[in-house]
Design a protein around this nucleic acid. Structure first.
Length: 568
RNA sequence: GCGUCUGUAGCUCAACCGGAUAGAGCAACGGCCUUCUAAGCCGUAGGUUGCAGGUUCGAUUCCUGCCAGGCGCACCA
């Protein structure tokens, strides 16, 4: 509907601007006014034209209305305020959306991806396989998963991907930490060095390793072989744990991608060679870092990627002092690999602590594949975990940090997911364990779910009294005349547009704010009007209305990965 | 110091890629359960949108400069 109106206005503008061939036709963007008196849609096109045409916005709006050809559903259009065109739709045509919703069910608001649809790869979580996920990972996980669902619902092919950082120095630390615990389990006196992973899960992994491999055999191995074996077992064990925890919050990936496999298959080396042939690599020395204690700075010659040619501040090393590739080198190869796998679009969801990394990856991709398939990077800001308003003390070193799993087990999956979705990713998020557990107004998830459960209760009640809607087409929706009913209808009508807008901007949290408002409108309706009444026609119409509301609540919550219960 | 994100009611956040009178929840105060779920609803009060300029018919939104906070700043990932 929105698009039909925009088209009508655009055609009117084209006619109107014939006398001004050099004047650009301004884009028509319709709004849904918050004020009901301002109609169902409003257009502001007349105002930007005022200066150009040297007429008042009101005059221009009048001229537009003289030539415009509206779709049938338009009841009236008039000029208001400083030059807005307010459009009012015929009531019946708006209410028809209820039938559409009930007919389409879960499909309402969704666009099915066709052959030509964009292939999107969305990479998120990617927590290192060195330990359990913390709450910050959880936010990224929930945001990424919801965004993936949203893009899927708006007509894209979507692959959810997890990049396993199973290479590099950290894996050595992990292997060593486990080995120390193995020795300890065998009665050795061991010293834990600074930087070793302290968590209890390391002891568990040590136990698992011992169950599969004899201690004497391990001792007899040479150091490299032993650490490599233990490292792989530890990575596997941690990934099992991570997958379990993701499962507990309802997140499933289509693809796990191993960094190690990039190195092993020679793709990292090949990538570096390719960059060399393109002449963007040189040997050089970097200046000392700014703003940090630089006492240990030693000028070192590196293999450097000239990212400054592509918008970066300094050139970035592709190889470490010992000649092995940096994480950055592997990451370029990884993103390039996504491109080769045929994705039209890639989205990375990273923690805010990786903010400084965005430019160099984008610079690298610019060098490799020019304009196409540049990664969109969403930086998810920190989560401040509190309990009753007091910060929860966390120390990774002491191993006392709160894991995502603990939080999910304590407050529940729906509450965690919904709370993480109620803010823009750019905002830091305060997450209070006690508030999230409370089943009251402090907790928006129950507010929305409650609306759904309430509707289910009403429908049960109606059924028990023998009030049942047979064929939706037989119901007279013109019974729905009250302010509250009209609000609900227009809100339901806006759902597909809300999804599209959220998807365009990669802002899945909008789905959460949408559904909170829909629930508010429903609660408001509920208290003012009864569904099951003496008047059979009215009851039927209202049942159709609330069934549609429940459907859209369920659809929206589905995108967020939150359940829509029938009873609470 | 540089980069980046944030700054809106006492608190936590919205505000539809620049639109009409800046809105919700919590906290405060006052109402509403013999009728479909009170995990709810209605009302009152609460604002110099961090500060100062600029662009615009119009700025919470865009630009510049300050102030405050988070994150990051070679050879880790």
């Amino acid at each position: 509907m929105k698009q039909a109106l925009e088209q009508a206005l655009e055609q009117a503008l084209v006619k109107l601007l014939r006398d001004h061939p050099d004047a650009p036709v301004p884009p028509v963007v319709l709004m849904r006014p918050k004020e009901k008196g301002h109609g169902d849609y409003a257009a502001n096109v007349a105002m930007p034209l005022a200066r150009l045409l040297k007429q008042s916005p009101q005059q221009i709006a009048g001229a537009i209305l003289d030539v415009v050809v509206w779709p049938d559903a338009v009841e009236a259009a008039d000029i208001a305020g400083p030059g807005f065109i307010n459009i009012r739709l015929k009531k019946a045509s708006e209410a028809n959306v209820l039938k559409t919703i009930i007919e389409q069910g879960e499909a309402y608001g969704r666009v099915v991806a066709g052959e030509q649809a964009t292939k999107v790869n969305i990479e998120f979580v990617s927590a290192n396989p060195t330990g359990p996920m913390h709450v910050g990972h959880g936010r990224g996980a929930v945001v990424g998963d919801a965004l993936a669902s949203l893009l899927l619902a708006t007509g894209n092919h979507v692959q959810r991907e997890y990049y396993i950082n199973d290479a590099g120095a950290q894996i050595g630390v992990l292997a060593n930490s486990v080995w120390l615990r193995i020795q300890e389990l065998n009665g050795e006196q061991v010293e834990f060095p600074e930087g070793a992973y302290p968590g209890e899960y390391i002891v568990q992994i040590a136990g698992e390793v011992l169950a599969a491999h004899d201690y004497q055999t391990l001792l007899a191995m040479d150091d490299d072989a032993r650490l490599s074996l233990i490292g792989q077992l530890a990575i596997d064990a941690n990934m099992v744990m991570i997958r379990n925890d993701l499962d507990a919050i309802g997140i499933h990936f289509d693809h796990f991608f191993s960094e190690q496999s990039l190195h092993a298959s020679g793709r990292v080396d090949a990538l570096i060679k390719r960059l060399q042939t393109e002449g963007v690599v040189y040997r050089g020395t970097l200046p000392p870092p700014k703003g940090k204690e630089t006492t240990d700075y030693q000028p070192v010659e590196h293999l450097l990627f000239r990212t400054t040619d592509f918008g970066d501040d300094v050139d970035r090393p592709l190889a470490k002092q010992d000649g092995t590739p940096t994480y950055f080198a592997a990451d370029i190869a990884y993103h390039y690999d996504k491109h080769l796998r045929g994705f039209d679009r890639m989205i990375d969801i990273w923690g805010a602590d990786h903010g400084g990394y965005v430019t160099r990856v984008q610079a690298a991709m610019k060098a490799l594949i020019q304009r196409e398939a540049q990664p969109d990077v969403l930086l998810v800001q920190m989560v401040n975990l509190t309990r009753d308003g007091l910060p929860v003390k966390m120390s990774k070193r002491a191993g006392t940090f709160v894991t995502l799993r603990e939080v999910v087990d304590e407050v529940g999956r729906d509450a965690v997911r919904f709370n993480f979705m109620t803010r823009r990713v750019e905002s830091q998020l305060d997450f209070d364990l006690e508030s999230a557990k409370k089943q009251n107004d402090e907790n928006p998830v129950y507010y929305v779910q409650y609306a759904h459960a309430r509707i289910a209760a009403i429908l049960r009640k109606a059924e028990s009294e023998g009030v049942v809607v047979g064929d939706v087409d037989d119901v007279d929706l013109s019974e729905l005349t009250t302010h509250e009913e009209q609000r609900l209808i227009s809100h339901l009508l806006a759902y597909p547009d809300a999804l599209i807008k959220a998807a365009d901007r990669l802002e899945a949290y909008r789905v959460a704010t949408y559904v909170m408002r829909l629930a508010a409108d429903f609660h408001s309706f509920y208290h003012k009007h009864r569904v099951v009444t003496e008047d059979a026609n009215l009851s039927m119409a209202r049942m159709v209305l609330i069934r549609a509301v429940a459907q859209v609540i369920a659809n929206a919550l589905g995108i967020l990965g939150v359940s829509a219960p029938d009873r609470m």
